[in-house]
């Protein structure tokens, strides 16, 4: 988006260091959260022997909560960077549906994905379709997970704990505790669907589009494959 004329441009600096660092830490946190979360909801087969010999669920939950702190603090930091970073740092947090050019780009991108166009447009930042998915599934999904997650966490740490004081109100908003669990559980799948689409599209774009993708999140530079 905000595509100025990219004709003749070879490369653009898009992702600043904090964004890149956050992206990869966040990826690791989500992998840990997804796997441990799945096993909290569907625990592994029973261990034999004395209860005092094991702490499997305890360890899984500990990993989940540790990754949760990293995930949540990272998300907060990412929001901070949206204010102080370059304009690309803000793209994640809103979808400019009020702009005709955004819609035009969106339809363009849709056609490219439906094989109705032989060549995609160039984009400095996110393409409109990616922006839509990132906002609705990743940003809103993350907010859902952080609010429901810390509300559940606060149930364990109990009344008077910071998590309970700050996020306890979330429980009655969803109904009761079991509803919060169900939504948190559904969140795993929302994030998983996003991850599948995100990884597939990033790799495909890297190969088939006119610009770099994966390496951009490593070096920060967007390289364009042609000068048209």
């Amino acid at each position: 988006m905000s595509d100025t004329n990219l004709t003749g441009v070879e490369k653009v600096y898009v992702y600043e260091a904090p964004v890149r660092l956050w992206h990869w830490i966040n990826m690791l946190a989500i992998i840990v959260l997804g796997v441990t979360g799945y096993f909290i909801g569907n625990p592994l087969p029973t261990m034999s022997g004395e209860a005092s010999d094991h702490y499997l669920m305890g360890t899984i939950r500990f990993l989940h909560f540790s990754a949760a702190y990293i995930f949540a603090i990272g998300f907060a930091g990412r929001i901070y960077w949206a204010f102080f970073g370059n304009h690309h740092a803000r793209e994640l947090f809103y979808v400019p549906i009020w702009r005709a050019s955004w819609w035009q780009g969106f339809i363009d991108e849709l056609k490219w994905y439906l094989f109705l166009k032989s060549e995609p447009a160039k984009h400095e930042g996110h393409n409109p379709m990616a922006q839509l998915a990132m906002f609705f599934m990743f940003v809103l999904g993350s907010i859902l997970m952080i609010f429901t997650g810390f509300a559940l966490y606060g149930e364990g740490t109990g009344p008077g704990s910071w998590a309970n004081s700050l996020f306890g109100w979330v429980i009655p908003v969803f109904g009761q505790s079991q509803d919060v669990h169900s939504w948190h559980r559904l969140g795993l799948w929302i994030i998983t669907v996003f991850v599948i689409a995100h990884v597939y599209v990033a790799i495909r774009e890297d190969i088939m589009s006119r610009q770099s993708m994966v390496s951009t999140m490593i070096s920060g530079w967007r390289y364009f494959k042609d000068k048209r």
Binding site: N42, S182, W189, V193
Partner: peptide, 14 residues
Amino acid sequence: TADDIGKTAVGIVG
């Protein structure tokens, strides 16, 4: 259930 909805969605998207 959340898992039924989720697994179906993951299957379709996958």
